[in-house]
Amino acid sequence: MIILTNNPDVETKLKDQNILRIDGTYRDVLVKARDLVHQGHRLLTHPLMGSLKPNETPYRTIAVSSEQGALDTDSLMLIENAIGTFDKFAQVTRPDRGVNTPERMLADFRMIDLSLITSALEGF
């Protein structure tokens, strides 16, 4: 399994996993996941996990398979829809969300992202 993340807490806490650190935005993580899907990796977790909207949290973590096979169309549809949804929400900017989020709130966003991916991967 490869874990794509732009969340430093995930990188620290799940350091035993195969982490692919993305130095970029939520969208950059989605796009990287799409590139990997194009190369035959499968999505393992939902790219829009959590109820936080893409214009609220700046953090995103997605698990994909390490194995590469034939193109997985379900994964492709999911990631394409997720990017479409992201772009839809990106049209509405929130002044104290996303890039302008205060640090205390950022810590909460990181924590939620970490806890969601951790509970998703329990038992793996």
Binding site: M49, G50, S51, I112, S115, L116, T118, S119, A120
Partner: peptide, 8 residues
Amino acid sequence: LQSQGLLH
């Protein structure tokens, strides 16, 4: 049922 993880 919502079951995504912490706070969800």
